[in-house]
Design a protein around this nucleic acid. Structure first.
Lengths: 202, 202
DNA sequence: CTTGTAGTGGAACGATCATTCTATAACAAG
DNA sequence: CTTGTTATAGAATGATCGTTCCACTACAAG
């Protein structure tokens, strides 16, 4: 038999992911991707049907290599509100350690530049948002079990709020790479969430 | 004397603003702008040095025609936290009435697709963020004067948090045009801010 | 060795981009 | 009318885009 087919090209996708993340889908050219990934044009097109297909693979891979490890504390069994703080700090530390191509979140960046008809991309963004809400809801629910302050509807609303607010953090972190500023945001969010569960003002 | 020079082209900028807002800077072509604004290529280039220059004019105009009226309650003398809710609902109602090209915020969308070296654009985005923080800080400070619960540093932190969180709202509103969902976010934010000023849990 | 496949480097293609230019129409002032 | 200015429609330009194609190399299996 001939040579074995490429071992699934994760290195290509990882490299393309960084490029898309740093520069944005529309600005990245296939020439950029060839240069940054070290894979030839033919190689890319043999594994993906085109630029958009590769980008979708990057969005999926982003969930695996960035969201899953960072969000693990929240998705862990018995996670409470502090796990949300761990999640935020996990990503902030990635930035500090220089593991990420820059700040921001690939999903949040993409929301701002996707065209409304692009359903395939939109579905991936929705999946991300739903994943966050699901995690936040479980964490708030667990924290709330101690006091029983919040109703189910209130927990839902709070989880949705947290998701939206956190997407603001990642979006804004692209504009301002001030770790102290960003950590203050995280501390405030956690404090606010806890104050709601403790239900001090109800 | 000959014919008078074009009356400052505000109609051109207004139209270009909508196009950039809806579609995003990189996706909009000069051909799109010619078609949407009804101004010829020569006309555009006689008033602006290029696409980026026109875009900057749109960012500036966005402050005037969108942010200033919507944010007016917050920037008004004696505004409190409810003014922040008015601001959010002002923009949500614009969407409902179909005045805006879609959802989202031109500034937030731009943050996600600007290249780090583009200082001229970045300065305009910073100006917007600073304006929001200044307004939120004044409103929270005024509300806090009744109880005196929060320190100056705490007010600063809360104003920064609010700005980041609100940018999350406008960013996410592009992905999910569900007015009920978005209003729930607004109500939650206002409730959280008030609970902090009342200082129930301190 | 030969054979078949995977992958490369880069030319080629047609489309589209931002920008410039030209010829012309519209109109105000003399 | 003529003259001067503004703006138009659209051709032209040169660059770059995503995509396709091809000659060639590397290598594993027979």
């Amino acid at each position: 038999m001939p040579r074995v087919k490429s071992e699934s090209r994760t290195a290509l996708v990882d490299s393309a992911l960084k490029t898309f993340w740093k520069t944005g889908y529309h600005v990245v050219s296939m020439g950029d991707l060839v240069r940054e990934t070290g894979v030839s044009r033919g190689g890319i097109y043999s594994d993906f049907s085109g630029k958009q297909d590769l980008f979708h693979a990057c969005l999926d891979r982003y969930q695996e290599v960035v969201v899953t490890p960072a969000f693990a504390p929240v998705e862990a069994e018995g996670a409470g509100i502090d796990a949300i703080g761990d999640y935020l700090n996990n990503l902030l530390n990635r930035v500090k350690d220089g593991n990420d191509p820059g700040l921001g979140c690939l999903v949040v960046n993409t929301i701002g530049q996707i065209e409304p008809e692009d359903e395939a991309t939109r579905a991936r963004l929705d999946h991300h948002s739903n994943r966050l809400v699901r995690g936040f809801k479980a964490a708030i629910t667990h924290e709330n079990q101690k006091s029983g302050t919040l109703s189910d509807a209130e927990i839902n609303t709070l989880a949705n709020f947290t998701m939206v607010s956190v997407q603001g953090l990642w979006g804004y972190s692209r504009a301002r790479a001030d770790l102290t500023f960003l950590r203050d945001y995280c501390d405030t969010l956690i404090k606010l969430l806890k104050s709601q569960v403790q239900g001090a003002d109800r």
